[in-house]
């Protein structure tokens, strides 16, 4: 997929997933990869930035196997942002789809 489109899209995905439940980085990368093609490594810089900006907090939780996992939890600020992001996203995709349909009809 075009890399310029992707970054914003990954952000939407991360917010949607975390608004439902806390996740660790691998889980987020895996979930997103199931739907769209991404370089999983870019998820971590994104999570760092959004955490620094106060949308998420992190905590460590022991796992039954291997080292403790860093979980990301959405903050109130993050929930507010997720709502407006989702609205923007829906408006955008709706608009673009309408435009494409119109163009197809004209042919």
């Amino acid at each position: 997929m075009n890399i310029q489109i992707k970054k914003g899209v990954i952000e939407v995905c991360v917010f949607s997933i975390l608004s439902k439940k806390d996740c660790y980085g691998y889980e987020l990368a895996e979930t997103i990869s199931r739907h769209i093609e991404i370089s999983e490594g870019t998820i971590y810089p994104l999570l760092r930035r959004l955490t620094k900006e106060g949308y998420f907090t992190t905590y460590l939780r022991e796992s039954s196997e291997g080292p403790p996992r860093k979980y990301y939890k959405i903050t109130d600020h993050g929930i507010e942002y997720q709502k407006s992001l989702l609205k923007d996203w829906n408006d955008l995709t709706k608009g673009v789809n309408e435009l494409i349909e119109e163009c197809e009809k004209d042919e």
């Binding site: 980085g25 760092r48 196997e65 291997g66 080292p67 860093k70």
Partner: peptide
């Protein structure tokens, strides 16, 4: 911290 994140990623993947 960054290195830790990728370490974690590898170990979960291996699991």
């Amino acid at each position: 911290e960054v290195m830790r994140d990728y370490e974690e990623h590898f170990s979960i993947g291996l699991e």
